[in-house]
Design a binder for these strands. Structure first.
Length: 346
DNA sequence: AATGTGTCCAACCGCGCAGAT
DNA sequence: TATCTGCGCGGTTGGACACAT
């Protein structure tokens, strides 16, 4: 059953490597006269000692008449970054939104240029989240390990110590929850790395990424809140279309309004489902890790209570965490949790 | 001038899917 | 239903070039 085997030439004898001008000429000439047909038979008919795949690639990526050559514009770069934040490495899908650009070209541009730019800005090109804060937090784990070592050892022989360890474990779990929550939140709210390029638009975030010591710098979650109020984004829900709208509201010159509308509606339409998809892919750090656990409700409540006072957002956030995490009865525990919190907010 | 290193990008490779048989 | 082809996709490679030492 199945199709009859192809009668094409022996593939092991076909030419590989760069195309010559003569080969290009033959391919273009054939397609202009006869159309594309099937790629498998095309090389034979066109008098080319290439396989169909190679012909297709050469045509699609180089010879096709509507291909736009030359440098990517700022506008195109923006489109790529935003679509990539939604679609990931779906280069062909991204390419369909950028007429004249091929998936291969976009992929190369991403890998050689955009990727590096994002990394330089401290943005993870895969997740579109700030790398700095996460890496910073990940450094906490050795600290936790060191701090727990003493109590862990004693707990094996001491029932009281065992209970203490359960508390430690709970706190560790909470810290892990915190990490994941911050991780998710940053995905939502600092999803547009291009903003970092615009000093006027977004100086505090840039400052944050450079590690300078200002209010906004020390509380990236607060800063990232798109509504500009003082409620920390630590507990906020998704703002799926925020980043894209913000770019265009920000005074960046847009040459092609219709193209903007096209991408805007495109990303808005697919953002929700893609967002869910992305979030589902994130591995849970712990089994029961949801943003609104009792622990976090308590934390949020503490924060909101503190928020009503006239204290600065940074100090209240810090203090709320401190109040929740630090056990007054245990000075050793208190000291390292204090240390951790100071580390998180430094 | 020679050599080393980094960057860019065209082209290749392997895989998976849809459709034909 | 199984098998095969055709095609498209994403990841990777390797050669050409630029720049540094």
């Amino acid at each position: 059953m199945g199709r009859s085997p192809s009668s094409s030439s022996n593939e092991s004898n076909v030419k590989k490597g760069p195309w010559t001008a003569e080969e290009d000429e033959k391919l273009m000439d054939y397609i202009s006269k006869h159309g594309r047909g099937t790629w498998r038979t095309l090389p034979k008919h066109a008098g080319l000692n290439r396989n169909g795949k190679s012909c297709r690639l050469r045509w699609e990526n180089y010879l096709k008449p509507d291909i736009k050559r030359g440098k990517f514009t700022q506008e195109e770069e923006l489109f790529i970054i935003n679509l990539h934040s939604v679609l990931g490495n779906k280069w062909s899908k991204i390419a369909t939104s950028l007429p004249g650009r091929t998936d291969n070209e976009i992929k190369n541009y991403w890998n050689t240029t955009i990727r590096k730019k994002l990394l330089q800005k401290g943005i993870d090109p895969e997740t579109h989240r700030p790398r700095t804060s996460l890496n910073h937090l990940m450094n906490l784990f050795p600290l936790l390990g060191m701090s727990n070592l003493g109590t862990s050892m004693s707990s094996w022989t001491n029932p009281t110590g065992l209970q203490a360890d359960v508390t430690q474990l709970a706190k560790l779990q909470l810290l892990q929850n915190m990490l994941q929550l911050m991780n998710n939140t940053s995905l939502i709210n600092i999803t547009n790395p291009y903003l970092v390029d615009n000093q006027i638009l977004n100086p505090p975030l840039d400052t944050f990424l450079n590690g300078t010591n200002t209010l906004q710098v020390r509380d990236p979650m607060l800063y990232a809140n798109p509504h500009g109020n003082n409620i920390p984004n630590l507990f906020s829900q998704t703002h799926s279309d925020y980043s894209l709208q913000n770019i265009f509201k920000s005074g960046i010159e847009i040459e092609n309004e219709s193209k903007y509308q096209e991408v805007l509606s495109y990303t808005q339409n697919i953002n929700t489902s893609q967002q869910n998809e992305v979030e589902n892919l994130l591995p849970a750090l712990v089994a029961s890790c949801t943003p609104r656990t009792t622990s976090f409700n308590k934390m949020e409540s503490n924060y909101n209570a503190a928020q009503k006072s006239t204290q600065s957002p940074f100090s209240t956030t810090f203090e709320a965490w401190e109040k929740f995490l630090i056990d007054d009865d245990d000075e050793t525990s208190s000291s390292y949790w204090k240390e951790i919190l100071e580390y998180v907010y430094s």
